[in-house]
């Protein structure tokens, strides 16, 4: 399993297009820091705002990271599946679950490495830009980092696993990729907005709206933010215990998608 994971990781690192996407991603993250700097008022930021800026990397991971996750998830299966290397691998004396485990481990490790790099770069740049005015918040920021990292990582994993699932289920490579893109945009930009959820409220009432809107990870994340995820005065434990349903949505989707990936990979003729 570890051999497969290692080979998969080497595959990511030698894939020029994956590296190209990463370069674009890091450019977007870094450019967002500089455009944020341009919007800072001349009298500086209050502690609460600065705290939120210092944790801005998690918003970047959620906003851009999901696309990276999707591309990683898709790449891990599609290149081998459509180049017939997967059939050769399946002919070896290996259990199918060993292969899928190896692939998931490789994707997760690769994403962890990218996210680690993003966070270090982001915090380093924020410290350079804001200098000593941000130093006294550093400890508080580090305290909040683990929970924010956990949420953004799970969020990204949802889309990574979704892309893997599509690659397993759909025979045509382009259809699998485009379906992943469609699902991403539908679940993040169309269904939780006025176009669908808002209209559900107007037609079917509040109960139906609550049921629908609570299905979307974007909304769950929005609620956690609204309740003080980026507020230095907020106690994280009480925030999570009050909004446990929103918080649990992330691991729940990840578990469901992992199970679906396993079942479909083990049972389907890939």
């Amino acid at each position: 399993m570890l051999i497969i994971a290692k080979k998969e990781l080497a595959g990511f690192l030698s894939n020029k297009w994956v590296l190209f996407i990463l370069a674009i991603y890091l450019t977007l993250v870094l450019s967002s820091i500089f455009s944020m700097r341009d919007q800072i008022p001349s009298d500086g930021l209050a502690d609460g705002q600065l705290f939120s800026v210092m944790l801005g990397w998690s918003k970047m991971l959620i906003y851009y990271g999901a696309i990276i996750g999707m591309i990683i998830g898709f790449t891990s299966l599609s290149n081998e599946k459509y180049g017939n290397a997967l059939s050769t691998l399946l002919a070896k004396p290996l259990y199918r679950d060993t292969i899928i485990n190896g692939k998931i481990i490789a994707c997760v490790s690769f994403l962890l490495a990218i996210f680690g790099l993003t966070i270090s770069l982001y915090i380093a740049l924020v410290l350079i830009i804001f200098g000593t005015s941000s130093a006294h918040l550093l400890l508080q920021v580090l305290n909040r980092t683990s929970i924010l990292f956990f949420i953004s990582f799970l969020y990204t994993m949802i889309f990574m696993l979704l892309a893997m699932l599509m690659s397993i289920l759909v025979k045509r490579q382009s259809l699998a990729f485009l379906l992943s893109i469609l699902s991403y945009f539908l679940t993040t930009a169309i269904l939780p907005t006025v176009s669908f959820a808002g209209n559900i409220y107007n037609v079917f009432g509040e109960q139906a709206y609550n049921f629908v809107i609570n299905l979307f990870p974007n909304y769950a994340y929005g609620i956690l933010v609204m309740q003080g995820l980026y507020d230095p005065a907020c106690d994280v434990m009480s925030l999570l215990s009050t909004n446990w349903a929103n918080f649990l949505l992330f691991p729940l989707y990840v578990v469901i998608l992992i199970v679906l990936c396993y079942v479909s990979f083990l049972r389907r003729d890939v």
């Binding site: 996407i21 382009s174 990729f177 893109i181 930009a189």
Partner: peptide, 21 residues
């Protein structure tokens, strides 16, 4: 095909989701 899909995906994402400075 992988490059075509990738670039189309990047184009769509940047076109609709990226806000210029």
């Amino acid at each position: 095909i992988f490059e075509i899909l990738l670039f189309n995906g990047i184009f769509l994402f940047l076109d609709w989701r990226y806000t210029l400075p």
